[in-house]
Every structure is written in C-alpha cells, then in structure tokens.
Design a protein around this nucleic acid. Structure first.
Lengths: 133, 133
DNA sequence: CCGCAAGTTTACGTTAACGTAAAGTGCGGA
DNA sequence: TCCGCACTTTACGTTAACGTAAACTTGCGG
C-alpha cells in the first residue's frame, strides 16, 4: 500500500515550529489546500513538503507570492500545452538567476565577514598590547 | 589628496535604483548618518558602501535591524574592550552560520529546480508525442 | 526677478505576514 | 453528563518598510 500517513494542523505546527494561524494563513493565500474531514483539515505528506518549501523560501527572503510561484513550478500537469510549458521553463530559469544572484551576495558577505573578523582580531591584539605592554 | 568624492541623495537614489524616501528612512532607522551642508545631506563613499551593504542584505531577506547589526560588525573601534571584541566575534560567527544555512537552502532549491525542469521537459515531450504521433 | 528642479520636514496611508481575542464545534475520558 | 482539549471561523490589531501628499526652502539659468 502507499504511505497513507496524514497530519493534523497541530502536528505540523509543532514539527515545523510555526503556529496553526500561520498554516491557515498560507491556505487563505492559496499556498495550501488540505483535505477536510468535516471541518477539520487533514494534511498529506505532499502538503508537508509544500510547507517546508514555503519555509525554506522564507529563510531566503521570498514573499509568499514568490513561494506560490515556486510551488506552481512543480505542477507540469498533463493539461499544460507547449506554450505553457515553455513559459514554465522561463520562470524556472528566472528563479535560477535569482538564486545565482543570492549565491553571489552570500559569497561577498562571507568575504566581508572575513575582513571584519580580521579587523576584530587585530583590534584585540592592539588592545592587549596597550594593556599588557 | 584622499578621495573627496561625495554624493547627493538624488545621485545615490538613481545609481542604486531606490527612492530618496528610502534613503531618508534608513537614516531614521539609524543605518546612515550623512554629513550636512545646511539642511542638505552629503553622502561619503563610506555611506555609499553602507547603502550597498543594506541592499545586499535586503536581497538575502535581512531586516533593516539585521543589516544594522551587520554594519556594526565593521566598527571595531579602539574603544572596544576585550569583552566587547569577543562579543563581536561571536556575532560574526552567528552571521556566518546564518549564511551557511542560506547557502544550503539555495543548494536544495537548485536541486529542486533541476527536478522541476526535468519534469517540465518530459511533459513537453509527452505532449508532442500525443500531438504528432 | 521668476520659475523650476532638487532638496527638506511632517504626517498620514498602505501592504505583507502574521498575532490575538472571541465565540463556537466535536469528541474521548472520569 | 460534563470537562477539557484540539479544532474551527471571524475579525480586529500590529509591525516593518516604505509610498504619497503637502508645504516649505534654496540654488541657478534665462
């Protein structure tokens, strides 16, 4: 049998360290659409994956709208025609470019932190020189 | 002579593709404190560097408060004592860890985009199969 | 001298991403 | 049967990061 594991909203909230309010908000924004048993939301493993994708996006400064776009990139349904698929490829490339820019920004920042650390250590030595010398 | 180049608020806004309102807002938040000639703000090359640092932070999803912290890491003044300098080193390490996490997130996302592209291209081929076969 | 462009301050408005509170539903256990 | 807990909806509140508008000054070319 396939993995029929499901999650309650509380379980996911605890595991991912967010509030249930946040999860419901993402649903309102169209990022999730879990099944229901009566009123109660039932989340699938796929829903959980989506949530993790959203949170990863947040750590990279993505807006929820951007994360929604990202999620849509993973749905090349059979009813997509060639033009739509080409558009999808274009959007994928855009995201790639954005990530490349961020990668570059991170590298620059790391170099700057190297300099900051060097200056800091130098200042520590200078200070100890004047206090012990 | 040292480089005495300065900038007006409008110059910086155009070059960095932001509004003057934004620059003044950053000043209100304590991220900049340019010199004045009368009422008018005069920006130094160092101010310009700070601005670029802030914008790089924004591209990585940093808040202005975080960018301010980052800026402070570059000021190991002579009046910092050993304890303060050690604290600075700690904060530098924190930022390093954060960047490492982001780096990891980017790598994961790139792999996911690879998969998305693969699925997309596969869907294109399937579609062309059914339309031309 | 006049007007305009670029600067200034003050202040209210807006959007995203939730927080928080109120009020109700459903259900397993003492 | 009633308690408590987890879930639900509705709705107003909040913070960050600016946008936008109004009203003012200042330097400069015609």
């Amino acid at each position: 049998m396939s993995e029929r594991k499901t999650y309650s909203i509380g379980e996911l909230a605890r595991e991912l360290d967010i509030t249930t309010r946040t999860i419901r908000f993402y649903e309102d924004m169209g990022l999730l659409s879990p099944q229901r048993r009566g009123q109660t939301r039932i989340y699938s493993p796929a829903d959980r994956v989506r949530l993790k994708l959203i949170l990863r996006g947040k750590r990279l400064g993505f807006s929820l709208a951007e994360s929604r776009e990202l999620i849509e990139l993973y749905q090349p349904d059979a009813d997509n025609n060639q033009a739509q698929l080409r558009a999808l490829l274009g959007k994928i490339q855009e995201k790639r470019d954005q990530l490349a820019r961020q990668l570059h920004d991170i590298e620059v920042m790391q170099l700057e932190l190297d300099e900051a650390e060097t200056r800091c250590r130098h200042a520590m030595r200078s200070a100890s020189d004047t206090t012990t010398g």
